[in-house]
């Protein structure tokens, strides 16, 4: 491989990684606080992508980037209500039940989408989709550059929120020591619901950033699930900085492995990184021991 191609491959990988970071941040937050693996993650991402699609269509014609605050807020609300109404209520506080419930929710969400929107693939055609920026030998489509920048910005804001606000501190307290948090008067159930909501809100933002260059169909959310798991594990389950670094590393590894070994076998890079990290350093690169 020539240096030019390697450079372009790294750039492509970073751009892809930006989205992985967002999807994984939601997952890692939910894991960190609730200690559950959210199997409904892909399906909820898909629902958010449909929201972006319908907002873009006439009569509203809302640009996906302008829709971002709206979809993110809507996703937060959806996550909050889902936790309060279904997951928290029916799980009886047991991890394995939460897992099954998120699995059931995922089946329901996929098929509601299939029923309402049919299985047809939908895309949105924004005017700037064909614009691209030259970064040396790499050509980066504008929407991917935007999604990368926005994703980094959102992560920074989330980090500020977690470290500076009372709510953020309460979430971290619950994540660290649940019983203790309860004892000092934190409404733990509320924190669970808020955390789940924020996790899903990340998906809302990811959906807005994805739609200009991806597509939505009832199964399109699952495309990002294994990669998000890998990112979370690589970064250390529950670690924000980990999700950020993990997503970018995974993006680049996937990209370079694909170039070197072919797209098919290159995909092996993802589960391999996943397995190796778990076996060699199960707390991830940035997780606490």
């Amino acid at each position: 491989m020539s240096p030019d191609i390697i450079f372009a491959g790294v750039v492509n990988g970073l751009m892809a990684g930006g989205i992985y970071v967002l999807v994984a941040t939601g997952l890692t937050l939910i894991y960190g606080v609730l200690h559950i693996i959210n199997f409904a993650h892909g399906s909820l991402l898909m629902l958010a992508m449909y929201a972006v699609f319908f907002l873009f269509r006439p009569p509203l014609g809302l640009d996906p980037y302008l829709a971002l605050p709206l979809v993110t807020a809507g996703a937060f609300l959806m996550g909050y209500v889902l936790y309060r109404g279904v997951i928290g209520r029916l799980s009886h506080g047991r991890d394995e039940n939460i897992l099954l419930i998120t699995l059931g929710l995922s089946i329901v969400a996929d098929n509601v989408a299939l029923f309402l929107f049919t299985g047809d693939t939908q895309t949105i055609g924004v005017a700037y989709a064909g614009n691209y920026i030259s970064l040396g030998p790499a050509l980066v489509p504008l929407p991917k550059l935007i999604s990368f920048g926005a994703s980094m910005l959102i992560c920074a804001l989330l980090g500020l929120f977690m470290s500076q606000t009372d709510m953020g501190k309460a979430i971290r307290a619950v994540a660290k020591e649940r019983q203790g948090a309860r004892l000092v008067g934190i409404d733990v159930e509320n924190i669970f619901a808020v955390s789940y909501g924020i996790g899903i809100a990340c998906l809302g933002a990811a959906a807005c950033l994805l739609m200009p260059f991806f597509y939505v169909s009832p199964s399109s959310g699952h495309v990002f699930v294994l990669i998000a798991f890998t990112t979370v594990v690589l970064g250390g389950m529950g670690s924000f900085g980990g999700a950020l670094a993990g997503g970018l590393i995974i993006g680049v590894v996937e990209s370079l492995a694909g170039l070197q070994f072919g797209e098919q076998l290159g995909q092996l890079g993802i589960p391999l990184v996943f397995i190796l990290i778990l076996l060699l350093r199960p707390t991830g690169l940035f997780g606490r021991q």
Binding site: S2, I5, A8, G9, N12, M15, A16, K144, F214, S220, V223, F224, I227, S255, G258, L259, G262, E263, Q264, Q267
Partner: peptide
Amino acid sequence: LIAHDNPTRNFDNIALRIRS
């Protein structure tokens, strides 16, 4: 012959190889 998985998230690298 370039094989890719279903679904594939991103074709940027395949484009890169085709260009080269």
